[in-house]
Design a binder for these strands. Structure first.
Lengths: 214, 214
DNA sequence: GTCTATATACTGATAGAC
DNA sequence: GTCTATCAGTATATAGAC
């Protein structure tokens, strides 16, 4: 029990740092965020941070992992539901978008990490850590692929290249991390209405342009 | 005449620096790009850069402006065409996406600038410069709004909130700056096929989900 | 017009007091 | 477990030689 309590305190302290770090990475990006910035936001000094995380890369990696953990938790309950593709896709997409909105700072960190990896902006020491994070994120992306293919087989989705379509779909579903800001007094229903518009737009893209070619 | 030649040489020298800077900003982002990085890419030292641009902010601003100039040039010829919304929208969207692909480094810089502005990651001295750039970019965004509204009136587009839809549309149309990479031996037709898929996805989003609700 | 210094400030990270 | 002090490295920007 004593161990449990101690571990909980440790986890709380780490969680505080992770939240502050996520907020800083969101506001300034990776390179422009200094450990002093994160410490200042906590009302502490960097000694506290380096006690829990042994480098800036390590701190960022934990923020990234936390963001992905949240996504998995939200979406996975729907992945293995039986039945037609469309309602399953809708549930997954809605859960994903809501997560983008509700945990925006962490999701922005995930985005920053993916972008850094794509452009090869990682140092040799960061490489190993990043490769694992990116693999984690790729696994998550694959959760949607089976449903996309099933939907195409069923004739409800209409797209050409799966890879490009997957990119376009995620770009749309992720986009609230850039432009969404909570309005004063916003209710859960308000937020879901915004998320619904995002999901509808993404779904329209998957369904194709159909008869209306002009 | 002597003046013309001298100005041309000056412009060439500036253009070389702008191209190198755009490439660096694309690869490393704004904060992580040093003036030394840009100079090294040119096979020069930073003295050369500071002779033409009086700060890093100024250099970045010029790259941003160049990217937006290219977009205007590509899209504006179609903006005032008479007739139904859909074919005009298609021409504009296609021109925009092709520009994203063909001038990717500059377009990434534009993205970086918008992102920095949105999250308020600009210093007080940068503020004025950035406000002008963002205003320039907002004007460009408005080029599409009239066509979107006309399309909704004509019943070919189906969306709720114009602001959100505009965000989603641009996110889709811009997305090649993140995932597109030219393949060896790629022809103009190949590139246009990729761009076409992006345009189709964006159009599907604008047209809505229609009868297939499930 | 471009280069080689150099001033000044800030960064990630460590060591040791409390 | 958190703080203070400090080191070594790197950044922007400037001054002056060529």
């Amino acid at each position: 029990m004593a161990n449990g309590v101690r571990d909980q305190v440790l986890e709380d302290s780490r969680a505080d740092i992770l939240r502050a770090a996520a907020a800083c990475f969101m506001e300034r990006g990776y390179a422009a965020t200094s450990i002093d910035d994160v410490a200042r936001r906590l009302g502490a000094t960097k000694g506290r941070i380096y006690h829990h995380f042994h480098s800036k890369t390590d701190l960022f990696a934990e923020v990234f992992r936390m963001g992905m953990d949240l996504n998995y938790e939200a979406v996975e309950p729907f992945v293995h539901r039986e039945g037609p593709a469309l309602p399953r896709w809708r549930s997954m997409a809605m859960a994903h978008v809501m997560q983008m909105i509700l945990t925006k700072p962490f999701q922005r960190a995930v985005w920053i990490g993916v972008e850094m990896h794509l452009r090869g902006a990682t140092t040799p020491e960061q490489r190993d850590v990043f490769n694992k994070l990116i693999a984690y994120r790729s696994d998550y992306g694959r959760l949607f692929r089976a449903t996309l293919l099933q939907g195409r087989d069923e004739g409800v989705f209409d797209f050409d290249d799966l890879s490009i379509t997957n990119q376009l779909m995620f770009m749309t579903l992720n986009s609230p991390i850039f432009w969404y800001t909570e309005r004063p007094g916003e209710t859960r229903a308000d937020t879901e209405a915004v998320a619904g518009q995002v999901v509808d737009y993404a779904l329209g893209g998957l369904m194709g342009t159909r008869e209306a070619e002009g």
